[in-house]
């Protein structure tokens, strides 16, 4: 049961694109501290994959994680409030950009540790299925994660126990400044093959192509299949992290950046809509984000006295640090 509506797919990529652009503005304006890892250019992957999921499904993302949370349907206003560190944020201001989570819609969190999401999602999906749900899961990670032992161990565990997890590698060519060629021996799909995990490479810049590949994998998994892997080739349009807006790091040749930016998932999906439909979506997204920004920046900041509220789910309280 996948959402094949091209208008909705366009809305998702457009929402993520404009959300990220707004977030970068808020970083420059000082309302978001600590910066963000923009998902600009990679929107088609989160949008396409999440369009293939059902309500009971779960996902976990990465440090570059806004797109996954938004594509799954989190409230952009509460997401932006989280980035601004407000009590109204998804995580009550305790998580920020790299930890945004909304468990009510199956988002077990962006995760700032490269390669961490695979094992967590594998355990969650296994547990939900043991409790009778028809859950499948998605683990998003970058090309940098494919050299993390923890993720490769998770491939093995998911394949061995036939846990239906879709491993989605967002191959944007770089881990920070390290090109894939300098880091990956063998290939990404070859890692999946070693565990008998079916793998496909897709054009991550085309949201519909990603959706079709994800939907096919999800169908097979729901029919009793084990984990699968999609390597989505993509390009990050902007910086690794917004700190690079202040410090220029020289690692991507300008002509490569120009070529990369030419394949724009928002434009590619937008061309599948009539001008009227596209304009309507754009206006609606703009209104949503205007409201989200107003909500975020006008929301109250958390009380410092509550800094460690939520440290323990059991209600244990930690000793204070003062003398």
């Amino acid at each position: 049961m996948t959402d094949a509506d091209p208008v909705r797919l366009y809305r998702t990529v457009r929402l993520i694109r404009r959300f990220e652009e707004r977030a970068v503005e808020l970083v420059h304006g000082g309302q978001i501290v600590g910066g963000v890892h923009p998902y600009l250019g990679q929107e088609g992957i989160a949008a396409g994959v999440c369009a293939a999921l059902d309500a009971d499904d779960v996902l976990a993302g990465t440090h570059r994680g806004h797109g996954h949370v938004l594509a799954r349907g989190a409230d952009p206003a509460r997401m932006l409030a989280e980035l601004c560190g407000r009590v109204t944020g998804l995580n009550a201001g305790r998580g920020g950009s790299m930890h945004a989570a909304d468990l009510s819609i199956g988002v077990l969190g962006a995760n700032a540790i490269v390669g961490a999401s695979g094992a967590i999602i594998t355990g969650a999906v296994w547990a939900y299925r043991r409790q009778g749900r028809d859950t499948v899961g998605v683990s998003f990670f970058g090309d940098g994660a494919v050299n993390e032992g923890m993720l490769l161990e998770a491939f093995n565990l998911a394949a061995l126990w036939r846990v239906p997890v879709l491993f989605v590698c967002e191959n944007n060519g770089y881990a920070t400044t390290m090109p894939v060629a300098g880091a990956v021996a063998g290939s990404i799909a070859g890692r999946a093959a070693a565990f008998d995990i079916p793998a496909v490479q897709v054009d991550g810049q085309d949201p519909e192509t990603v959706r079709v590949a994800a939907a096919a994998a999800v169908d097979r998994m729901r029919a009793g299949g084990g984990p699968e892997l999609i390597e989505a080739r993509t390009y990050r349009f902007d910086v690794h992290h917004t700190f690079e807006h202040a410090v220029r790091l020289d690692y991507r040749p300008p002509d490569e950046v120009t070529r990369g930016r030419a394949r724009d998932p928002v434009r590619i999906q937008g061309e599948r809509l009539t001008d009227t439909d596209r304009a309507a979506v754009d206006a609606e997204v703009e209104a949503t984000l205007d409201a989200a920004v107003r909500f975020a920046v006008s929301s109250p900041e958390p009380d410092p006295a509550d800094a460690l509220t939520y440290l323990y789910a059991s209600g244990l309280t930690a000793r204070a640090g003062g003398g």
Binding site: V58, L108, I120, G123, A124, V125, Q131, A154
Partner: peptide, 10 residues
């Protein structure tokens, strides 16, 4: 971490 995920799932 599999256990962490299973715990998150109840």
């Amino acid at each position: 971490s599999f256990a962490t995920g299973a715990a998150l799932a109840g």
